[in-house]
């Protein structure tokens, strides 16, 4: 790609005490893409994000935001970055507007007009002068996003943005992020431990486990890259299993439960196999194509780490 990345991590390691929390990770994020950061709790996602926003010093390695080193040119780097680290931590005893005014004073070139602009953008106009402590979690999340967008950043970092949101809220957030990226061309880094979320939202994904990045790739490449699986539901699964295992078109077949067989096979040969089963007098109930989900991939990559 000839486009310059907005976020660059180069061999970043964080050691606390004797424990290696983050082990030599590298990735780039480009303008106009949503980058998913996936891993179970404790994999090191939040630690990585804290290093990105300058809250934690990496033990070694370099982090650049739009070409500015986070440690050496902290101010310039942060001017190009908006973030929510973990929950949107705002001043509960101030109103939403006061919060934004306060953060605006810490950014160059943000006036009242811009403040109103982001309030409208996240649709908080009606409640903006109420105390934040009276806000619902979803509203706090939106105020957090407003805060992150105040300085017209090139990079937006959202750490577990769907925590505590209802399904409707999650969908709204997804559409909002997509629209934002399409309109402004910024880069978004979204972390999550929920696979389905990232799958729908992200263009590219980094999968993290035990402080390491185990895989980076586009969602479409990762999902469905491997040959497809086909699930067979039959009455007599033992006999069916032996027929399927003997077939040259099937690479693997295993019994899943009393009536279900998972196979990994060339899906164009489904009807041939179906015919073979019927000839043997085996009742076939359903044949289902199983697309490999991020979840399958994740389990195969991390050896079944805890994941929701």
């Amino acid at each position: 790609m000839s486009v310059k990345p907005t976020v660059q991590l180069e061999n970043v390691t964080k050691i606390i005490g004797k424990k290696t929390i983050i082990n030599n990770i590298s990735f780039d994020i480009y303008p106009g893409e949503v980058f998913g950061f996936l891993g179970p709790n404790g994999a090191g996602k939040t630690t990585t994000i804290r290093m990105l926003v300058g809250l934690i010093k990496p033990t070694s390695g370099k982090i650049h935001i739009c070409g500015f080193d986070v440690r050496k040119h902290f101010v310039q780097a942060m001017q190009r970055l908006g973030s929510i680290v973990e929950n949107p931590e705002l001043y509960k005893y101030l109103s939403g507007r006061e919060n934004l005014q306060m953060f605006a004073r810490m950014l160059p070139g943000v006036d009242d007009e811009r403040i109103q602009e982001v309030i409208d953008l996240v649709d908080l106009t009606a409640r903006i002068d109420d105390h934040v402590r009276t806000y619902s979690l979803g509203m706090r999340q939106r105020l957090g996003i407003a805060q992150a967008l105040l300085g017209r950043p090139d990079v937006l970092i959202l750490d577990e943005p769907t925590n505590g949101l209802d399904p409707m809220g999650i969908k709204d957030l997804r559409l909002f992020i997509r629209k934002l990226v399409d309109e402004t061309g910024l880069s978004v880094l979204v972390s999550s431990h929920i696979l389905s979320e990232i799958e729908l939202l992200a263009d590219r994904v980094a999968i993290m486990s035990h402080g390491k990045i185990v895989k980076v790739g586009s969602v479409s490449d990762l999902v469905g890259a491997q040959s497809a699986g086909v699930d067979w539901r039959v009455r007599d699964s033992f006999r069916a299993l032996s027929i399927l295992q003997e077939s040259p078109h099937v690479q693997a077949a295993e019994l899943y439960d009393d009536h279900t067989i998972h196979t990994l096979m060339d899906e164009s040969k489904t009807s041939i196999l179906n015919e073979a089963l019927m000839k043997a007098g085996i009742e076939v109930w359903t044949i289902e194509r199983k697309v490999q989900t991020l979840e399958d991939l994740f389990i195969s990559l991390t050896g079944g780490d805890h994941i929701v």
Binding site: G54, Q76, M78, Q79, L81, V85, L90, L107, Q147
Partner: peptide, 8 residues
Amino acid sequence: KTLLSRPV
């Protein structure tokens, strides 16, 4: 966290 990730 919010305070210290400002460009200040």
